[in-house]
Amino acid sequence: MKIIRYLLVATVVLASACSSVGVKPWQRDLLAREDMQPSGSSIDAAIDDHLYFSKEASSGGRSFAGGGCGCN
């Protein structure tokens, strides 16, 4: 129950904080730029993720952790 209470408080605080940040629609020029897209190039990220998945014990976080590869 304590954890749920903390999560509720955190959600309310986050929602309050988020409502005071952000931009208007006409201010999204920089955010729409390619290099401002989350996670950058999807192909680069996929190749890097595959490399790290095959060499390290951790994966995912940015997206799902599954590998679909018998290499690890």
Binding site: R28, L31, A32, R33, E34, M36, Q37, P38, S39, S42, I43, D44, A45, A46, I47, D49, R62, S63, F64, G68
Partner: peptide, 26 residues
């Protein structure tokens, strides 16, 4: 994103409808 292997990668830009397929290769 359109990346089939990273479906939760957020994106904030809008795709423009296009008759063309966009091909990204490496």
């Amino acid at each position: 994103s359109g990346d089939a292997v990273a479906p939760l990668t957020p994106s904030i830009a809008t795709p423009a409808p296009s008759d063309e397929w966009q091909i990204d290769s490496a």
